[in-house]
Computed example of a mutant assay.
Amino acid sequence: MCQMPYEQNLGNLGAKVKAETTGVLAEMYGILELSTHTVFNLQHESKSQLNHKALLLLNVAHAQCKVFHVEQALVTCIAHEYELMAKLYKYKVGSSKARVH
């Protein structure tokens, strides 16, 4: 069966989100690894300096989490848009067939 352009775009979008999700998880693991090395390597720093760095790392992780959730919401909205466009095209086809007969 022939796929409509919106169906192809939806498939591409799903693959893109999957790749971005993998990238986000890799970044999160990178931050965790970096923070672990930072704590071990920076034992000479004051507690307030370490707390400040840890807070910055948590803020970055939180921001990345927010971006991920917004991207998921965007994918949902785009999928809904494609579904509505498909319904509109089907309606147009049906009304065109009725006018021909």
Rank of each mutant, 00 (worst) to 15 (best):
G14Q: 05
H69Q: 13
L88I: 05
S46R: 09
E71K: 09
V17N: 00
V67S: 12
F68A: 10
T36F: 07
Y82E: 01
N9V: 03
V93G: 07
E27L: 04
A26V: 03
Q8N: 03
T36Q: 15
V17A: 02
V93S: 13
T21Q: 04
L55R: 13
L32H: 11
T38G: 07
N41C: 05
L50H: 06
T36M: 10
A54N: 15
G94Y: 06
Y29Q: 12
A73I: 03
G30S: 05
K87C: 10
V60I: 13
K18E: 09
A79W: 00
Q72C: 08
S95Q: 15
E7M: 01
A54V: 07
Q49V: 12
L25P: 00
Y6T: 08
H44T: 10
V100C: 10
Y29K: 13
H44C: 09
H62A: 13
I78E: 07
R99M: 11
Q8K: 07
I78L: 09
M4A: 10
A15W: 00
C2R: 13
G14H: 01
H52S: 14
R99G: 07
K66G: 04
A26Y: 02
L10E: 06
K90C: 10
H101W: 11
A79R: 04
G23Q: 01
L58Y: 09
V39P: 01
I78N: 04
Q3Y: 04
V67D: 12
H101D: 13
Y29H: 09
H69W: 05
G23M: 01
F68N: 08
V39D: 13
K90G: 10
Y89H: 12
Q72D: 03
V100R: 14
Y89F: 11
V39R: 14
F40G: 14
G30Y: 01
L13G: 03
M85T: 10
S96P: 01
A26H: 06
A63M: 08
E27A: 06
L42W: 12
K47R: 15
K97P: 01
H80S: 14
F68D: 04
G23N: 02
G14P: 00
L42T: 14
K53H: 10
V39Q: 14
Y6A: 05
H52E: 15
G30R: 03
E81M: 08
K66Q: 11
H101C: 11
A63R: 12
L25K: 08
A19N: 05
A79T: 06
K53G: 05
K90Q: 15
N12F: 00
S46F: 03
Y91W: 05
Y6E: 11
H44S: 15
E71C: 04
E33K: 12
V67Q: 15
A79D: 03
Y91C: 09
